[in-house]
Design a protein around this nucleic acid. Structure first.
Lengths: 211, 211
DNA sequence: TTCTCAAACCTACGCCGTAGATTTCACCTA
DNA sequence: TAGGTGAAATCTACGGCGTAGGTTTGAGAA
């Protein structure tokens, strides 16, 4: 792609830049992400990007916002039952994380305040309140749930883009119990494991509500 | 500090370098961390560091390892009850995270395989097995617990070194339930909140075991 | 037609990580 | 004691980075 001459439009805007940035991080990872590489992908001078987005940090904000917004595209019908809302939100979040494993650390590290993120939380707490759960339990639930989701998905995705890294062999002499349990860890990163652990967290919330 | 002439010892070794690196990240943050700045702190040529540690990535590995190792310093007496083991491990982990808030993202992002980390997990699963919990629940517990701890602490510490950022005002029209619950979020990052959420996760594990 | 201004480009600066060559000195062996 | 050896540290250099500041261009308003 050849450069435009000065003054002619390159058709840049925030959305197009963000989409290209997501694609670049997906392809090369966060370490290799940079303004110059992004400009290359866009067929544009690096400094042109600065007319739409203030700097590298704002660029990364745009990336995480774009990726969160993907979650919102889907059915608009949500169940009444808060546990179903939580499960579906969690699964949507997981799918998004697997679609963009190299973007995900960005989400887990920065506080999320985009409309899509806030809408998901509002949906969950509204359903919990409708169900008559205690206010403190309801207020804590998103922090607990997304805390778990972020930490767990970070661990599962840290092995690379394809899926989780298989854990290294365990020294059976030093860590006998871990070694004995190793066969049960075989599904690390699997949907079944995710469902199991999610169920554990949700049952914790359910039982706090019942006390 | 003046440079040594070539060949004279600067007293560098892996431990001294790691300690200086931890101090540098604590002071300036991960973004500002670099080999050249670290060398400045040590009063040493940047390339001298490479004789002891292979590169920047290995340097960051050494940082996270050093910080995890801090946790191990403490009483060697551990209770039998698995929930007490889990609570104490979690609180030790939290204290470490608050001591090094700018290092913490490193721990949550990379898989941990240092002896100190493995020892903590072995302690927990051994206690659970002794208590006769089902093997699958025991095998899942560290993943669930550290998933939550990593994600939650990441969120709480992302506001900066001192403590959590107070959340921005909520648009009451768009997110009425969140706005109504906002007063209950006031303790974000507090020990009381941590205890509450930790209790939720542990009760989830307890109830999975009872099924 | 002339003016204005946003969009894009160009140049340059000071950083960064690190490969490769070089210097120096402590210690071992004869 | 003389000479050899290897580890520790330094020096030099390269390509890449983020971005500040200045310049060019052309589209549309006046």
């Amino acid at each position: 792609m050849t450069r435009r001459t000065r003054g002619t439009s390159a058709g840049l805007d925030r959305a197009r830049i963000a989409a290209a940035a997501v694609a670049l991080v997906d392809r090369d990872g966060l370490d290799r992400f940079g303004v110059r590489r992004l400009a290359d992908d866009l067929g544009v001078d690096p400094m042109s990007i600065y007319h739409h987005i203030k700097g590298k940090a704002a660029l990364l904000d745009a990336v995480s916002e774009a990726v969160i917004a993907e979650m919102e595209a889907g059915a608009e019908e949500w169940p009444d039952d808060w546990e179903q809302v939580a499960r579906r939100t969690a699964h949507d979040y997981r799918r998004m994380a697997y679609r963009h494993p190299r973007v995900f650390p960005l989400l887990a590290t920065r506080p999320q305040s985009s409309p899509a993120a806030l809408a998901a939380v509002e949906r969950l707490v509204a359903a919990m309140r409708r169900a008559g759960l205690p206010d403190q339990v309801t207020a804590d639930a998103p922090t607990t749930l997304f805390g778990f989701l972020n930490g767990y998905l970070l661990a599962v995705l840290s092995g690379g883009p394809g899926g989780p890294a298989d854990p290294p062999a365990i020294d059976a002499a030093a860590y006998p119990t871990m070694a004995a349990l190793a066969p049960l860890q075989s599904g690390f990163g699997s949907p079944a494991e995710f469902d199991r652990l999610l169920g554990t967290v949700l049952s914790g919330i359910r039982h706090q509500a019942a006390r």
